[in-house]
């Protein structure tokens, strides 16, 4: 490779500078100034006011819950898929990406139809004489919406990490006397940590910062931190406050990035 080929990175470098670094700088700039342009921490400290703190707490709670649910649903599934040793690796990935080709707002909206008091699910439940499900417009419905939207982002990294484990490594553990449970705890789980971290990141961050799912399934009364920021920008037009609150969100993103770089040094837990 010649040194000339380094110049090939120029377009991308320029692009990331203009569209990634500078815009982030602007968020910081707005977040740390007031309308007159003077330095202030008020926009960040605004998170401590009752309303904002409540929506941050709610967002943290719901996103944590949905991350846990996603993990618990996805891990067994990823293990089953990885054990199937399907030759068509891409096919499995496609099954979980395919739903994205139908607009996510519509898909989330469809859950309204399914969950409503007279919705499809309750019709089915009453047919089997089971009690009706009353979760629409509750936090539970928001969690369901988050799990629904972000589950593929948990499944794919887990599947990739688990499919990478050499069958002989698992065989070796059995060979040395480990039963299935011990092999899982000592071998499979630790070796899949990059996938777990990546999956958690891919679910937790979007769930924490979402603003549509809550208004679609939560009945519009439950404000998450994402909803608050969105309103600051599109309706109230207080960019300074919106930026300040965004910076608070970025703290969580940063923590997540640090954690993932500790556990996943080689970027093994990628989605693709």
């Amino acid at each position: 490779m010649t040194s000339k080929s380094k110049w090939l990175s120029a377009p991308y470098l320029l692009w990331s500078a203009v569209f990634i670094i500078i815009p982030l700088g602007m968020v910081f700039f707005y977040g740390l100034t007031d309308k007159t342009g003077a330095f202030t921490l008020d926009n960040i400290l605004a998170i401590t006011t009752a309303g904002h703190a409540k929506s941050l707490r709610l967002a943290l709670l719901l996103s944590l819950a949905s991350t846990i649910v996603c993990f618990l649903l996805a891990y067994p599934l990823a293990m089953i898929l990885a054990n199937m040793k399907v030759k068509r690796h891409n096919f499995i990935i496609l099954i979980f990406i395919l739903p994205m080709w139908m607009n996510f707002l519509l898909r989330t909206l469809a859950w309204q139809t399914l969950l409503e008091k007279n919705g499809v699910i309750n019709h089915v439940l009453s047919f089997f004489h089971l009690p009706a499900l009353k979760i629409i417009n509750t936090p539970a419905a928001i969690i369901l919406g988050m799990v629904y939207n972000f589950l593929p982002f948990m499944i794919l990294p887990l599947y990739n990490a688990l499919a990478k484990i050499d069958t002989n490594v698992i065989n070796a553990a059995h060979d040395l006397g480990a039963n299935h449970f011990y092999t899982f705890i000592r071998i499979i789980l630790p070796l899949s940590i990059p996938g777990i971290i990546s999956g958690i990141t891919m679910v937790f961050i979007p769930a924490l910062t979402t603003f549509v799912i809550s208004s679609l399934l939560g009945g519009g009364k439950l404000l998450l931190i994402g909803d608050v920021i969105e309103q600051e920008f599109t309706r109230i037009s207080n960019w300074h406050l919106g930026s300040g609150l965004s910076m608070v969100l970025m703290i969580f993103i940063l923590i997540n990035m640090v954690l993932s770089s500790i556990f996943d040094k080689e970027g093994e837990g990628s989605m693709l």
Partner: peptide
């Protein structure tokens, strides 16, 4: 690669507003 990861790991809402401000 770290810079590349920013839009992936960052929240869409932050990416959105940062570009809007730009």
């Amino acid at each position: 690669m770290g810079i590349t990861n920013i839009p992936m790991l960052n929240a869409d809402i932050v990416t959105g507003i940062s570009l809007m401000l730009l």
